[in-house]
Design a protein around this nucleic acid. Structure first.
Lengths: 232, 232
DNA sequence: GTACTCTAGATTGTATACAATCTGACCCAT
DNA sequence: ATGGGTCAGATTGTATACAATCTAGAGTAC
């Protein structure tokens, strides 16, 4: 395992801390660490067979990105998001993305190629039930970030991307629900249609519906999971 | 100077890199370094008489916060924002803050105390021309962040705060313009009034006007400055 | 004069040792 | 039993040495 990580590091990343960040992010997103699991510098040094310098940098990065939380003098822990925090993230998405569709619907769409590609993708997904939750979650993220990119504001895209990284985990839950994939296809196509029709209010409404349905699904799913966990 | 920084470090900050971050941020905001000025680890080690470890951390932090840009193998440089990037920052503000006032205007305002305090502050500022640009810029920032805080979304507030830190410099330019302080007072009071009246559309409009006027002022000021700089 | 190569210096990346600080548990006194 | 004090271990903070890599300029061949 250690060797694998190190080889990957040399090929894909410019330095060790970048590869550690990527590896840990991957593991956290896939729940390979339980929430609140503690990670210390010394422990990770051993696991990755590197010195503390790159590990320190990686932990700091992950903490500022919201994957870990720093506990002064007690190391770092995998951040567990509660109900309220998740809703907050969805709300920030809403704020940013309502603005994005408003921009796109107002001006005639630049980057028409990208938007057309989205239309094709999500039209074809309508009759394709082969995709797994994670694949759908990533495609969904891509849909929303492509729109932001088309709106042309790099700073906004960066903020949105930061949020989406943390939400991938919950998008996967979302797409676990029955018929969610199909509904998402319709909602996404509706958004694109309203943008093309320069219908600002309609585009906003469609986007709001799409995001809030996701939020509600996640909310319900977590509630269920907690109820089951505490029912023993 | 070195001693001063170190003493400050021990009192106010838990570690050296935090104090270096604060010091450099301060200097950058006040234009004590020319834009694109290069900063290297070794140089800062000398200036602050500390080792590379805290300096490295500080530089990384400032780079992710957008105060510095990293130039691979050539050190760091004070980030110079161009027209387009500044407009992007103002746009992200707009997206977030339109959402904030919408929230506040919809529900009856929680945190009424904070909002009332804002009203008092900006009413009294109407007839007070004693404040300097920087003081006004900071009060303006506080106004907008207090609203975000009242809306109750911590994540949104964090994103907004990150943007505002980078914009302080430009807010100072904004308030350099004649009558801008007075106009801002009226605009802020208008926003508060619309929120209190639960007039969602009016509150959004008032906020949009406030932010876009700021953006336009900064835009014009920079254009002038550049024109003067290139007129020789 | 131009383009190419090579090298010295600059710069960051990594490892490691040591210092400072906090935590939590054990022990003792009451 | 309970409260407080003390100490060992855990953990991060800082300094420093060395390695790897890139840059830019000098020098040379054409």
């Amino acid at each position: 395992m250690v060797d694998k990580v190190n080889r990957m590091a040399k090929r894909q990343f410019s330095n060790l801390s970048a590869s550690i960040v990527a590896t840990l992010k991957e593991r956290i997103i896939h729940w390979q660490y339980p929430p609140e699991h503690r990670l210390t510098e010394a422990e990770l040094c051993q696991k990755f067979s590197v010195s503390r310098s790159p590990v320190r940098e990686a932990l700091r990065t992950l903490a500022t990105d919201g994957f870990l939380k720093k506990m002064p003098n007690r190391g770092y822990a995998v951040k567990q998001y509660n109900f309220h925090e998740i809703e907050e993230l969805y709300e920030v998405r809403l704020a940013l993305e309502l603005y994005v569709v408003e921009c796109l619907a107002k001006r005639g769409t630049a980057k028409k190629d990208d938007v057309d590609a989205l239309k094709r993708t999500w039209t074809s997904l309508l009759n394709d039930s082969s995709k797994k939750d994670e694949a759908l979650a990533r495609l969904d993220t891509l849909f929303h970030e492509t729109l932001a990119h088309a709106a042309g504001n790099k700073s906004l895209l960066r903020h949105l991307h930061a949020i989406n990284e943390r939400l991938l985990l919950f998008r996967m839950i979302d797409f676990g629900k029955a018929h969610r994939a199909e509904r998402t296809c319709h909602q996404h196509l509706e958004i694109l249609k309203r943008i093309a029709a320069k219908d600002v209010a309609g585009a906003r409404k469609a986007m709001q519906q799409n995001i809030e349905e996701g939020r509600n699904n996640v909310h319900a799913a977590i509630k269920d999971a907690l109820a089951r966990a505490y029912s023993f």
